[in-house]
């Protein structure tokens, strides 16, 4: 464990908590893409299947459980409890356009052709593109609530910090996982234009609006 990975994990945890609290306290999931949340729940499910078979540390197991519980709780709130506030008209990105190619790629490019490893690879590739329905929804509505933009900033920062962690691990322990690194770079690049808008607008107290 290094400070970059710890900050990354905390940023990820912060993002998940921000979103869950936003939905719970405002009793509304307006402006949030339920499809992205379903994809994130799928990412954690396929990545953490080794939760009970491969113990790394208390921290590792605890965080995996928290991510799983929070992501399913968010999906539950969006599609059941506060279903009336779910904006399905703007959340129209076709998830199968992501899941099918990612599933195929996971079969073709992986470290080890075993069920657990292919599912882990699937989760890594899927996480890289899971935010697309959310970004697509914001481009359709042309704006995002400030709290949603904080959620996205924390979520985007987490994988950017992981990239720094991978550089650090490469130089300190010679460790690198090319699949995670390439997918992590793609994932972070997808946030770039959002990062620009967040820093130039939200941090100046303005509403996050996309140029129509």
């Amino acid at each position: 464990m290094n400070i970059f990975r710890l900050l990354g994990d905390l940023s990820h945890l912060l993002a998940i908590i921000i979103l869950l609290l936003k939905i719970w306290r405002t009793r509304s999931c307006a402006g949030v893409s339920g499809k992205s949340q379903i994809l994130f729940a799928l990412v954690f499910t396929t990545r953490y299947l080794d939760l009970f078979t491969n113990f790394i540390s208390m921290y590792n197991s605890a965080m995996k459980l928290i991510y799983l519980v929070c992501s399913y709780a968010t999906v539950f709130l969006m599609y059941f409890k506060f279903k009336a506030t779910y904006d399905s008209n703007h959340d129209t990105f076709r998830m199968e356009f992501l899941v099918v190619p990612v599933g195929g790629l996971a079969f073709l490019v992986n470290h080890d052709f075993t069920p657990l490893e292919i599912l882990w690879t699937f989760s890594i590739y899927l996480e890289a593109v899971a935010i697309l329905p959310q970004l697509f929804m914001i481009s359709k509505t042309g704006e995002a609530e400030t709290i949603t933009s904080h959620y996205l900033f924390a979520l985007g920062s987490y994988r950017a910090l992981y990239i720094v962690n991978w550089v650090f691990r490469f130089y300190t322990e010679g460790f690198f996982d090319l699949i995670a690194i390439v997918a992590g770079c793609v994932q972070t690049i997808l946030y770039c234009d959002f990062f620009y808008l967040y820093i130039t607008k939200v941090l100046k107290g303005k509403q996050l609006t996309l140029p129509a």
């Binding site: 994990d9 790394i56 590792n60 470290h111 080890d112 490893e117 882990w120 996982d177 995670a180």
Partner: peptide, 10 residues
């Protein structure tokens, strides 16, 4: 059994 390399990152 399910092998797979162990991943220590979240």
């Amino acid at each position: 059994g399910w092998k797979g390399t162990t991943h220590d990152e979240l």
